[in-house]
Simulated scan of single mutants.
Amino acid sequence: MDTETEPVRIVLVDDDQLVRMALRLVLEGEPDLVVTGEAADGDAAIALVAERGPDVVLMDVRMPGRDGLSATAEILARPEPPRVLVLTTFDSDEMVLGALRAGALGFVLKDTPPAEIVAAVRAVAAGNPALSPAATARLIAAATGPGSAGERRAARDAARRKLAALTERERETARAIAEGLSNTEIAGRLFISVATVKAHTSALFTKLGLGNRVQIALLVRDADE
């Protein structure tokens, strides 16, 4: 990476001090990453983000007091918010799903190898999703499993109405995003330029009222339920 580029500023949020210490050691071993603060609960995280203005927040989901889902929603509602990367042990699938729906850009397991955590932070800092391949299947299961039949049907119908308002090309782009394809891969599949893919993606954000590709993918999953 360009050594003249400002380092990615990170806030760590976890109620376990040992987890925070381990993450700090991993992240600050990289020349392009710096930890600017730590918080042990959601309220402290919100205050710290307001004070430090980080680029990325690594957010635990289950904590005493305010949980990570509530804190994520409030942080992402701020003007020019940081990117949020969810930390999980997957004892809380529904909260992870809620955080992603609120706008978090991805999630990593707490026992993820250090190199993969670093890669996830860099991806999220660049505005790209970071969904752990090993855990994506469980996330999809959480999205389509729990909840009453009525709730799932209501979510499906709402998602289908939103997708129906798109152009055919926009729907094709949305479905390709849900498959995890990159802009270059989508361009190849649809025989269009990468610039056109970016234009379609921007239109999706505006028309669907969403902020990132993860939210688009979850909407498509809801529609296909």
Rank of each mutant, 00 (worst) to 15 (best):
D2I: 14
T5A: 15
E6Y: 11
P7Y: 14
V13S: 07
D15V: 13
R20C: 15
L25W: 01
L25H: 14
L27A: 05
L27G: 02
G29R: 09
E30F: 09
P31L: 03
D32H: 07
D32V: 03
L33E: 01
D41P: 04
D41I: 04
G42F: 00
A50N: 10
E51K: 13
V56W: 03
V57W: 07
G65T: 08
G65W: 03
S70Y: 01
A73D: 07
I75Q: 05
A77T: 07
R78C: 14
E80G: 14
V86A: 11
T88I: 12
L97H: 12
A102M: 01
G103C: 00
G106H: 08
F107M: 01
T112E: 10
E116N: 04
I117D: 00
V118G: 05
V118Q: 05
V118Y: 00
A120M: 01
R122F: 09
A126Y: 13
N128W: 14
P129R: 01
S132W: 11
A134T: 04
R138F: 02
R138E: 10
A143L: 15
T144D: 02
G150C: 06
A155N: 10
A159Y: 03
R160N: 12
K162E: 07
K162T: 04
L163Q: 05
A164T: 10
L166R: 09
T167Q: 02
E168Q: 07
R169E: 14
R171D: 07
E172Y: 10
A174C: 10
A174R: 06
A178K: 02
E179L: 15
E179S: 12
G180K: 03
G180R: 13
L190A: 11
S193N: 15
K198N: 13
H200R: 03
T201Q: 05
A203Y: 07
F205L: 00
K207G: 11
N212E: 15
R213A: 14
Q215W: 15
Q215T: 13
I216C: 10
A217R: 09
A223M: 06
D224F: 12
